[in-house]
Amino acid sequence: MHIFLYVLFGIGVAFNGLGALALIRFPDVYTRLHGATKCTTFGSIFTAVAVIVYGFARGGTTYQTLAIHAIIALLALLITNPTGSHAIARASYRSGIKPKGAVVDKLEDRS
């Protein structure tokens, strides 16, 4: 049981670390958004699932409450994260930041 939880946490932390690494390695705001917002979401899903599994397995009202709160946090994350990164991307495009090294930019043709 605990080993399973450690595996979940390990995967989560690994992807969160990759997200941080992406901030350093990628060249501009759009590619950094890919790494920094989505790898961390995927990592956070695993850590949240670990908390949920632990909460329901341990039992008792306190731990069930913990698990339910983790589920709601997960739902909120899944809704707010894409909305937020879309808002950042759209705002940066509108303030004139072009994607660096882009092979194609269809949005430029439109405006």
Binding site: L21, V104, K106, E108
Partner: peptide, 20 residues
């Protein structure tokens, strides 16, 4: 897609662009 991006983070092979 996460595994794919993880690979790109480590190797740095990207061809970015905006498509319709």
């Amino acid at each position: 897609a996460n595994l794919d991006v993880a690979y790109r983070v480590i190797t740095g092979k990207i061809r970015p662009g905006i498509v319709r």
